[in-house]
């Protein structure tokens, strides 16, 4: 199990357009990725390819989230997703 933390950089938090960009990126990966707020049990983690799950997570600007994945290429995949979360996508 690989694990990464990321601080949400988008001003509007992880919803609207930033959430859409993130979900689309997860959808292109061959592995399953989960997302949870930092400090929450891994069992409560949500499917990171679901825009509705991401929106219900309610992560705001500055919140820390935890990404988890297993399998080949999990580390590289998570690194690329962290990069997306730590960019202010709303500003682009």
């Amino acid at each position: 199990m690989s694990e990464r933390t990321a601080v949400i950089a988008s001003r509007v938090g992880l919803h609207a357009r930033p959430a859409g960009i993130f979900v689309a990126a997860v959808g292109e990966l061959p592995i399953e990725v989960t997302i949870a707020m930092a400090g929450e049990p891994a069992d409560d983690a949500m499917d990171a390819s679901s825009i509705l799950s991401i929106m219900s997570l309610g992560a705001s600007n500055g919140d820390t989230v935890v990404l988890r994945a297993e399998g080949d290429g999990a580390d590289e995949a998570l690194d690329s997703l962290v990069k997306i979360l730590e960019t202010d996508l709303d500003a682009e």
């Binding site: 859409g20 979900v23 689309a24 949500m46 499917d47 390819s49 679901s50 825009i51 509705l52 799950s53």
Partner: peptide, 9 residues
Amino acid sequence: ALMANDPML
């Protein structure tokens, strides 16, 4: 469009 085929839904 993303919501329509959302895995959770």
